Simulated assay, not measured.
Amino acid sequence: MMKIKTNPLFQLDYDVVNKGVLRDFLAEKEISKTTLTAIKYTGGQILVNGHEQNVRYPLQAGDRVTVLFPPEKISDGLAPEFGALSILYEDETILLLDKPAGQSTIPSRNHPSGTVANYVCGKFMAEGVPSTAHMVTRLDTDTSGIICVAKNRHIHHLLSKQMNENLFKRQYTAFAEGAITPSFLMIEQPIGRKEGSIIERIVRQDGQYARTDVCVEEIAENEATEFSVVKLALHTGRTHQIRVHLQWLGHPLIGDDLYGANEHVFARQALHCSAISFLHPLTKRRIECVSPLPVDMHLFLQSSRKGSVEGKV
């Protein structure tokens, strides 16, 4: 049995079933060495039956192990701010948000404040949560949709591990220029930085492995353009992955002028993170969250529809 508690420190309680060394028991619970170091030196505790013990302590069946995680310091340059957050799901460990287009995920030179991370830190401060904003997933400023935030470095570690093992699923809805055929394709092309640019990425053979699955749901058309309505599943998380892969395919996102699309057709890249799915880091229950198309994409599609692809998946 496991209880979750966050006041005043993030706390996990575990019942010991088999005897063994505390260090090994904590490793089985996926508590990293980095986290153990932070617990040792920055204010956390590891208790066995209510008494503090070191990691060499011999455990017996029936013991209760309590891990008190230390308070976390907010990074320099990430000032807590108070602003609106659209919360899709929240518990003691995770926060799922619906980010609007035009808001940055984290501070940068061009967007030093007003970001999702700033507002999350403000929310945590107001609620007495002793943590910083751990952004498990990020979206480009002009991409809308679901962002996952962890409330503790340990939870961030567990969710990042799921992403590395492809257990954390992300689905995007996008509008891409032209009619994409066939109706389903898998893009496996390595992505790297474009020479001379600190922002733009390209497909290049010495880049990092990247895979995007593309499913065409509909072909639509208006006076300005013909476009494909696509669902995309990410198997890797490279910077600008969807944007780069669709450009490589010859069908850049509508409105994505950085990657060759006509910026006058749509006011931003038409990309929305519409669904995520993962195992809850503690309960292991599958969490599934969806976000409907934002108003700008919905209205653009409604005014442009002319038909669907045969054999729609």
Rank of each mutant, 00 (worst) to 15 (best):
I219G: 08
A133C: 15
T173Q: 09
T115A: 09
G237E: 03
R285H: 13
P190L: 03
L232S: 04
T141L: 15
G114A: 05
G43L: 02
G145V: 00
T173V: 05
G255H: 03
M1E: 10
T141I: 15
A267S: 12
H235E: 14
Q302R: 03
L96Q: 01
N110I: 08
G207Q: 04
Q208I: 06
D296F: 02
H156T: 03
W248V: 01
D257N: 14
T239Q: 14
L59P: 09
K19Y: 05
Y41Q: 09
L253F: 05
F168I: 06
H157A: 14
A84F: 01
Q269C: 01
I155V: 13
G311I: 05
M125F: 07
V48S: 03
I87N: 10
Q103M: 15
P190M: 13
V203S: 08
L78W: 11
I287R: 06
T132K: 14
Q60A: 11
E92T: 07
L22W: 05
H280E: 09
E288Q: 13
E30I: 12
P190S: 14
R285D: 14
Y57L: 15
E92R: 06
N54S: 09
F184S: 04
D296R: 09
T66R: 00
Y209V: 13
P190T: 09
Q241Y: 06
R170L: 04
L26S: 06
I31N: 06
D213H: 08
Q45V: 04
L78V: 12
R238A: 01
G192L: 08
H156I: 03
V116K: 00
G260E: 01
V21Q: 14
E200W: 03
V17F: 12
F184K: 11
A275R: 12
Y57E: 06
F184V: 13
I180V: 07
G196A: 09
I87F: 01
M1S: 15
I180Q: 01
L185A: 01
K5T: 06
R305Y: 10
K312N: 12
I198H: 03
D24G: 09
V120S: 00
F69I: 10
T141G: 06
T137Y: 10
L22T: 11
E288R: 13
S228E: 03
K194R: 14
I31H: 03
K306S: 03
G50T: 02
D257T: 11
S277A: 11
A179W: 11
M297V: 00
K123G: 04
F184N: 04
A220H: 11
S304H: 06
E165N: 14
A133K: 02
K73M: 06
D206H: 00
T143F: 06
L159Q: 01
R193P: 06
L232V: 04
L258K: 13
I94C: 05
P70N: 07
Y57H: 14
L293A: 12
E52C: 11
A126N: 06
L36F: 02
F10D: 02
S160E: 12
C289R: 13
Q302G: 04
D76T: 04
D206S: 10
M1T: 14
